[in-house]
Design a protein around this nucleic acid. Structure first.
Lengths: 208, 208
DNA sequence: AATTTTAATGAGTGATTACTCACTTATAGA
DNA sequence: TCTATAAGTGAGTAATCACTCATTAAAATT
């Protein structure tokens, strides 16, 4: 009756929803994978972190690799959709400011996930494809019309799109991605400040 | 007499130098580690690729991890020293052109190594430190005086050094590092062209 | 309440792993 | 040439791993 959702009462033991358990496992998977990498993580440890038996993992995900994919895929698209709904600015320059802000926020919140994705993309073609289509590819297809509009309006120079974007992506990715590798190297106090620095350089360059 | 180097003759069997064997193992280690990551590689496979018995690896390197470190460390510094000896330009702008060219070359030649280093830096603090001190840290200390000179001469704006460098590094790193992730996304035909694009953007920005 | 269906469990399994060590082989020195 | 030493070998080992499956427990259905 009140059945398939919520699943409680009756016995003195209650049980989490299937979906809740799945989420627990995904969350634990992300945590452990991010900390130790795919091959460095064991299903036993993930199970422990999720508070389930090891066998339970394999009831939800056929293999360890399927778990990895499941951990990465949905998150990849999450942030992109976000951008569509947000205010995105009216001018191309304004768009870049919004986009940059949005990405820096995403990177800061999901840095473990993103580093994991870049690391594992080297070894698993499925991850590589998800990364490409989801993050980089989509990012580029969102930017492109604004870039072209900027060139048409005379706001931007007529630089080659893809190389310019690769550099832009590099600036953005490097911000959060390797912040922990660079240690205390980035003295900005706020994300605003960081975004300002990046955007200023991207738009106007270093030369006087 | 002619002894300790070259080590041949006498028996009908000759043997490689200790140093040669070491190099074989290091080379094979790089190849396999780069392809499969540290935890995804087995010492058996590395031994096979090096043409030695598995036990031989452990005669040269106490543990698998020591092999990883040995693979990464020397290469890290190699390219930096290179720069000191090369012509580096007279003006700050010229210096950046040379530095960029040098780095792009290094990245293109050692992309497997560099990707491996960034991937493993997340999981091994020794690698992280080597990466930081060797590549990023040194790179920054080479650049700094030129950057400051450029600001003094009025060639450059007075932008904050570290955030600007982080962006620059990002542009450079992203070039080769994720070329294979970005697939055919970067349509430059030559490294010259790529360097030109990056430098142009870095110096003058996108805005008109 | 009784029964069926679905979910969770964790000890067990075969495969794989980094590393060892007793032994062989080549080289250096006499 | 003969011997002592250094280098190389690979079968063996204990540990670990992803994954299975017979058993138990809860939820849904009757």
């Amino acid at each position: 009756m009140n059945s398939n959702r919520d699943t409680k009462i009756h016995g003195n033991q209650k049980r989490k929803t299937v979906e809740q358990r799945r989420q627990d496992i995904l969350e634990a998977g992300l945590k452990i994978f991010a900390k130790k990498g795919y091959n460095g993580s064991t299903t036993a440890e993930i199970a422990r972190a999720a508070g389930v038996a090891e066998g339970t993992i394999f009831r939800h995900f056929p293999t360890k690799k399927d778990l990895l994919i499941a951990v990465l895929e949905p998150k990849v698209l999450e942030g992109l959709i976000q951008l569509d709904k947000e205010h995105v600015g009216d001018t191309p320059t304004e768009f870049f400011r919004c986009f940059l802000w949005n990405r820096l926020g995403l990177i800061k919140e999901n840095d473990a996930l993103i580093r994991l994705m870049f690391a594992e993309a080297q070894y698993h073609s499925e991850v590589r494809e998800a990364l490409f289509k989801g993050v980089l590819g989509q990012g580029i297809s969102i930017i492109r019309p604004w870039f072209e509009k900027g060139v048409e309006r005379g706001d931007f120079k007529d630089l080659p799109f893809l190389p310019t974007m690769r550099s832009f992506m590099g600036m953005v990715m490097f911000y959060g991605l390797f912040g922990h590798v660079m240690l205390g190297l980035s003295p900005e106090r706020t994300m605003d400040e960081a975004a300002g620095n990046i955007l200023d350089l991207f738009l106007h360059g270093l030369a006087r």
